[in-house]
Amino acid sequence: MNQDRRDRLRDAAVAVLAETGGRGLTHRAVDAAAAVPTGTAKNYFPTRDALLRGAAERCAEQYRALAAALAGAAPGPADAAQLAALLAGLLRDVAGPGRPRVLAYLELRAEAARRPWLAALLDPVAESDFAAYAHLLGAAGLPAGPGRASTLTLALHGAIPHLLTGAPATLAAAGLDDLDRFARDLLANVCAEANR
């Protein structure tokens, strides 16, 4: 099969999930989003589960590419200020160019609640965040125990739905109306016990 067309269909599936949610993910909708003849998606992904798998694999690839780009060749942020800037950049991506990927990923997580095979496929993406944030804390010279890494990871994951909906009052109440300040405050709170 043509890999470029397959990737185009997977990108279209991600776009459909982001725009219409899980209920809107159909072969016909993917064909339309990819601007290919009707029936093309069905040839590449014969079932809805195959479409879900393709979209999940694409989301995971995009996430890994973003993580690699943010990490670059450097060992990690050298201090708390650099880590805060990196975290704010991640959150800006969620609210900006990464929004479709993240919306699709959240739709896939909801589908995974009823499909164990999909949960197993997505689990490494979420699980890797805990180790990644522990590494970033340590690289920045901050306390990096499992508890702090979990707190940081879960706080960032918890911020995502609020950023996606963009409700101004909620963003202000959560401190997400200023992502630089939010990231600095989050790190200060996560590492507060070490500063006492």
Rank of each mutant, 00 (worst) to 15 (best):
residue 38 T to F: 05
residue 109 R to V: 10
residue 73 A to Q: 15
residue 136 L to I: 00
residue 59 C to Q: 11
residue 127 E to A: 15
residue 76 G to W: 03
residue 95 A to Y: 03
residue 64 R to I: 00
residue 129 D to E: 14
residue 114 R to H: 15
residue 56 A to V: 12
residue 38 T to V: 15
residue 127 E to T: 10
residue 23 R to P: 00
residue 191 C to W: 07
residue 114 R to L: 13
residue 63 Y to R: 14
residue 165 T to W: 08
residue 80 A to G: 11
residue 132 A to D: 07
residue 194 A to H: 12
residue 147 G to I: 13
residue 62 Q to S: 10
residue 56 A to G: 14
residue 39 G to V: 01
residue 12 A to N: 04
residue 40 T to G: 06
residue 60 A to K: 10
residue 24 G to E: 06
residue 130 F to E: 08
residue 136 L to G: 00
residue 10 R to Y: 03
residue 25 L to Q: 02
residue 55 A to H: 06
residue 110 A to R: 15
residue 63 Y to W: 13
residue 69 A to D: 14
residue 68 A to S: 10
residue 106 L to G: 05
residue 147 G to S: 11
residue 136 L to T: 00
residue 75 P to F: 02
residue 164 L to F: 08
residue 82 Q to N: 04
residue 186 L to W: 06
residue 66 L to M: 15
residue 16 V to C: 05
residue 22 G to N: 05
residue 69 A to F: 08
residue 104 A to E: 05
residue 126 A to G: 07
residue 37 P to I: 07
residue 22 G to C: 05
residue 12 A to F: 08
residue 104 A to I: 09
residue 37 P to C: 12
residue 177 D to N: 13
residue 149 A to E: 07
residue 71 A to Q: 12
residue 131 A to Y: 02
residue 27 H to M: 03
residue 113 A to E: 15
residue 115 R to H: 11
residue 65 A to L: 13
residue 171 L to S: 13
residue 109 R to C: 14
residue 83 L to K: 01
residue 39 G to T: 06
residue 189 N to I: 02
residue 125 V to N: 09
residue 169 A to N: 05
residue 33 A to M: 02
residue 128 S to H: 11
residue 58 R to Y: 04
residue 38 T to Q: 14
residue 12 A to V: 01
residue 30 V to F: 02
residue 184 R to A: 13
residue 165 T to V: 12
residue 15 A to L: 12
residue 139 A to W: 02
residue 151 T to V: 11
residue 115 R to V: 11
residue 23 R to T: 02
residue 71 A to V: 01
residue 37 P to L: 11
residue 81 A to M: 06
residue 76 G to M: 08
residue 164 L to H: 04
residue 167 A to E: 15
residue 28 R to V: 10
residue 106 L to K: 05
residue 135 H to Y: 01
residue 43 N to T: 09
residue 44 Y to S: 06
residue 71 A to C: 01
residue 63 Y to T: 15
residue 163 L to Q: 03
residue 37 P to D: 09
residue 59 C to D: 12
residue 182 F to A: 13
residue 136 L to W: 14
residue 11 D to F: 04
residue 68 A to K: 14
residue 107 E to V: 00
residue 94 V to L: 02
residue 193 E to Y: 04
residue 49 D to T: 08
residue 52 L to Q: 10
residue 109 R to P: 00
residue 145 G to Q: 12
residue 120 A to P: 00
residue 89 G to Q: 07
residue 113 A to H: 10
residue 106 L to W: 10
residue 83 L to H: 00
residue 190 V to A: 04
residue 62 Q to H: 10
residue 140 A to Y: 05
residue 102 V to L: 05
residue 190 V to D: 08
residue 110 A to K: 15
residue 67 A to I: 05
residue 128 S to K: 09
residue 129 D to H: 15
residue 123 D to W: 10
residue 88 A to T: 10
residue 139 A to K: 07
residue 120 A to G: 12
residue 179 L to Q: 04
residue 165 T to F: 13
residue 81 A to P: 03
residue 108 L to Q: 02
residue 93 D to A: 15
